[in-house]
Amino acid sequence: MGLSNILYDKLKKLCVSLGKHNDALYAVLAIAVFKGVMRPTFTMMDKKSDRETKKYAAFREGLTEAIAFASYILTHKLVLPLAVPIAKKTGKSPKKVKNGLSLLSVCLTAGIIIPFICNLTLKPIMDGVKKLNDKRKNSKTDSFDRILDIKENIVSEKINVSGIYSPQLSAPSRSLLDAVRRNSLQNAAMKVGG
């Protein structure tokens, strides 16, 4: 039996099983998996943004898709056992109830559960990762300084903190700052289409 025959049989089996029962879950899971791989890859390939921003955005995109994947599977697993009792109670065909519940769970997950979980968890996770990164960087530079024993330009006297005031910005400079902030967000944090 040649390789082409094996492939032919596998493809035929896959098509027949999809033809007999095509769950709404298959397509959305496939999309989530490929988005989770492709989008971070595309982001990392972008030459316009700096490396740290790309890393941050790619991690965020990957995390969003991982959340989506897990949510689809979890809601599916939670909802499907309800099919038999519902079918018994209403006298409908269990297979039809199962199919219907599957699509309903996909819709609810895509429209409500995933955005809700992302809103709830993405920001704290990303903040945590950023802090960890900063800590690691600081510890690296600290150890580097210790090895070299750098003591030059050390300010020995204490700075009077109460004497430092935050600058008062005029309206045009505030709007300019907002625009810059939004632009940096456009490049990194709020990437769309998870």
Binding site: K12, L14, C15, V16, L18, G19, K20, N22
Partner: peptide, 10 residues
């Protein structure tokens, strides 16, 4: 004709 239907889905 599940094979035909499945090929469309795939």
């Amino acid at each position: 004709f599940e094979l035909a239907k499945g090929s469309i889905e795939l």
